[in-house]
Nucleic acid binder design. Structure first.
Lengths: 195, 195
DNA sequence: GAAAAAACATACCACCTAGTACGTTATGGG
DNA sequence: CCCATAACGTACTAGGTGGTATGTTTTTTC
């Protein structure tokens, strides 16, 4: 990675963290270049606008991050429903970077920007859809092998799980870390009753 | 209601709508006074700062609104779990003011402001807690009369339901109105398995 | 109906915002 | 070594931001 690529990815990483904590609109370019020690000329050389930087963050920082935390854990050999439960548990309790009071970077951005910017909405929709499909696939296979009742809809269950994650990340902002345990406990009960 | 009270509540109502659509930080005082045809002097006579106006919106617009839509439906004589399901259905599909792509005003504000402003966080926490307690109370009574299994935790279930609402309001922003039906259908199944 | 206070109106300010203009330095291929 | 271009640096702008200073009008109170 050359020096130029390094500046670019430094901007993306630091801006991602600032946006995670304060929101996209509340994170000014001036603050980004101040914390990264990158000048304005360099910033606008790498990104023609703030929006372009925001979209780059979604695609180059959030996509890989969510694949690692949200999808990869679904690929190993554990059985249903424990596989989904463990994925969720790792997501909520196992990531040292996430701060409960700040929620989830992707969920936050959906909340803030989906209604305001179609390009953001599209990029973020893809992110959620990918996760939901990965969960749905796991559920479908479990249904085929008889681990889940045949009258249930994997697509619908997957959506219910995704909404639950989105919601608990938001409620964590007001209730703090303790509520993650309540959610996980209830999720476990819900998942067990699928079979 | 005198003329002065009228200006004040006009500001609160219009600002509430603007914030609902664009977010709190993205809604400037200049835009508020432009759409309400209220001058800046009048605005700052009624509210000493933008923050004070925001808190007034939570307490004077959101509190009553959420009591009507979220708590009152729990007080009539229907049986569990249909009572909770009907409340949620009314909340998601029965409110003509809410726009699916914009989510829920209260949830949006929690997402945006809880990490940034303690006063906002406190006011919004109260709002959620009240709702959660109302749901919990209904569940506890149902448990006492044998409609819900005794080994389940009403508090935990109530929290699970609140997170689900928060989440589906957020996912509605990317998936549109259709996903509300999926959520309600899965919620119904979840509630039925409580007894 | 006059004094007092509430309610509103206008003009302004210091600061922040995304973005630009234009100059300078670093780098890699011939 | 040259020089084209990539990469970066500095200074600036036009418009928006929350908030204030200072006035004028309207309403209440006696």
């Amino acid at each position: 990675m050359g020096k130029a690529d390094n500046t670019r990815s430094t901007i993306l990483q630091k801006a991602f963290e600032l946006i995670y904590k304060n929101g996209y609109q509340a994170t000014s370019i001036d603050v980004i270049i101040a914390t990264t020690h990158v000048t304005k000329g360099a910033f606008f050389y790498h990104f023609k606008s703030k929006e372009e930087m925001g979209l780059a963050i979604i695609k180059e920082v959030m996509y890989p991050g969510m694949a690692a935390a949200m999808i990869d854990p679904l690929l190993d050999g554990k059985d249903l429903p424990d596989k989904i439960y463990q994925m969720m548990k790792g997501l909520l309790l196992g990531n040292p970077f996430f701060i409960v009071e700040y929620g989830c970077p992707a969920i936050n951005l959906i909340e803030e920007m989906s209604p305001l910017n179609p390009a953001f909405k599209d990029a973020l929709t893809q992110l959620v859809v990918k996760w939901q499909h990965a969960i749905e696939q796991v559920l479908t296979r479990a249904q085929q092998s008889g681990n889940i009742r045949p009258d249930l809809s994997p697509r619908q269950i997957a959506f219910f799980i995704v909404t639950g994650y989105s919601g608990v990340r938001n409620m964590g902002k007001v209730f703090g870390p303790g509520c993650y345990d309540d959610y996980l406990s209830e999720l476990k009960g819900y998942l067990q009753k699928l079979s």
